[in-house]
Nucleic acid binder design. Sequence first.
RNA 1: ACAGGUUGUCGGACAGCUGCGCCGCGGAAAGUAAGAUUCGUGGGUGAGGAAAGUCCGGGCUUCAUGGAAACAAGGUACCAGAUAACGUCUGGCUGGAGCAAUCCAAGUGAAAGUACCACAGAAAAUUACCGCUUAUGAAACAAGUUUUGAUAAGUAAGGUUGAAAAGGCGGGGUAAGAGCCCACCGCAAAAGCAGUAAUGUUUUUGGCAAAGGCAAACCAUACCUGAAGCAAGACCAAAUUAGGAGGGCUUUGUUUUUUUAUGCAAAGUUACAUGGUGCGUUUCCACACCGCUCCAGAGGUAGGUCGCGAUGAGCUGCUUAGUGAUAGGCAGUCAAGAUGAAUAGCUGUCGCCUGAGAGGGAACAGAACCCGGCUUACAGACAACCUGUCAAA
RNA 2: GGAGAGAUGGCAGAGUGGUCGAAUGCGGUUGACUCGAAAUCAAUUGUGCUCUUUAAUCCGGGCACCUAGGGUUCAAAUCCCUAUCUCUCCG
Length: 116
Amino acid sequence: MEILTLKKRKDFLRVAGKGERVITSTLVLQAAQTLSAPTDASYVGYTTTKKIGKAHIRNRARRRMRAAVRLLFPSLAQPQMSYVLIGRYNTADCAFSKLCKDLTYALKKISAQSTE
RNA sequence: ACAGGUUGUCGGACAGCUGCGCCGCGGAAAGUAAGAUUCGUGGGUGAGGAAAGUCCGGGCUUCAUGGAAACAAGGUACCAGAUAACGUCUGGCUGGAGCAAUCCAAGUGAAAGUACCACAGAAAAUUACCGCUUAUGAAACAAGUUUUGAUAAGUAAGGUUGAAAAGGCGGGGUAAGAGCCCACCGCAAAAGCAGUAAUGUUUUUGGCAAAGGCAAACCAUACCUGAAGCAAGACCAAAUUAGGAGGGCUUUGUUUUUUUAUGCAAAGUUACAUGGUGCGUUUCCACACCGCUCCAGAGGUAGGUCGCGAUGAGCUGCUUAGUGAUAGGCAGUCAAGAUGAAUAGCUGUCGCCUGAGAGGGAACAGAACCCGGCUUACAGACAACCUGUCAAA
RNA sequence: GGAGAGAUGGCAGAGUGGUCGAAUGCGGUUGACUCGAAAUCAAUUGUGCUCUUUAAUCCGGGCACCUAGGGUUCAAAUCCCUAUCUCUCCG
């Protein structure tokens, strides 16, 4: 499955407003259905606010979320969905295995909710 | 050896697997308004000394027609030099800190003017309240080199207040006093000498009415500055809406029963002199543009390309000149270029710190057009030179 | 990325360099009114360190504090410089 990047502020607001939300200790996942996407693709966006640290900390948090997405999305994500990952204060320096575990849990919960 | 100072360098190293951006190379398909896109690769390359703060200075870009003058606004302020430029840097001067190496300083002008100096105090700026002194005439009795108060004059020694009260200290002098006079110190001016200069120094003179502070209060003097910023800006340009080879306006004629309105036809835009506009304001000179207005051409939104990194105040090494900042010469070299923004994940070995060991720790911090500085943050490591104390020779 | 503004008590918010720990309002505390409360009226009220006193407080005296650190000044919340944080605008 193909992973595309969300780039427009408009799209982020749509996902935040209409979508589902799962909060874990290391990240927040938001998701919303996107029928305009290709049938074998889904969108992913990353948000790291100034609250979690200075520029290099935000960069690091975003990179680790991107690495986790690359590892897990091909098996767990659903097509025609938009996902937004929001970094938290400990995203940059927690154990990577913990980050992956939280993301797996969040994705499974989202897919369970959307199939209901 | 210990303590300290200055300048400079570094900011863990190597390897493996999986992945990312850009560049190069090789292919694939499709044909767009424009840009595209996609696959592969034992290919190359991929954050900092501060990339940060945005406090200064430039390049670059756009706007402004060019020149001159004045004003406004803002900035800088010992002297000389360096530089593309600077509020930066270098060398020196003066003042201050330190035993010293060395470090620190917005360090022009209060003998042009204005304002302010609360409270206290006689007085906060052409000071006479108390005091001191002399003279005059009056009163008292102790009958004097007396005391008391009054008037006139002199005085800046003494007094209280305050952050600050008109050179300091000592001696002479005087009715009492006073740079009134003298010595020493401070200050100022002139001349000589040294220095490019700031300034230093020597001599002479002045008596200090050159009478307080404040210019990071206004201000004065000298010098400098057009404004905005890559979200600058240049180019390509869908879709949608509106319009479409012209329309509105003014005048005249004509049509319909009259006015309005509408249609049709024709003409017009005041006119070669004056006015307006031209990016802080005004003036002068020159120059350009405009001439009732709307629309089309065009402009330009989404989106894209360029700006954007291989020519630059570039980097590295050697060398020449200079006390130095720096400048010149020679040789080599091209080293991130993204745009919801590339450096990540996992693992091993070695080195450093800590710990008996297992283990734990490793700072400040992420390019966003680019350079020169300043400021701020920062675990630690190294080198060179210098100073002080102690020890040894 | 760029441009600008601000920071004062528990909260909001004034404040010419001088009698400023700092106006005013809200809030808190105490009292009055009431059977009790609300409303109203009156008074009072910053924090820290330190001294004195005390069994321990209260009261009283001194010093410091207007985001933080320097500087100018006799004197700074106010003027100048540096830093930190917050907010606004520019596609």
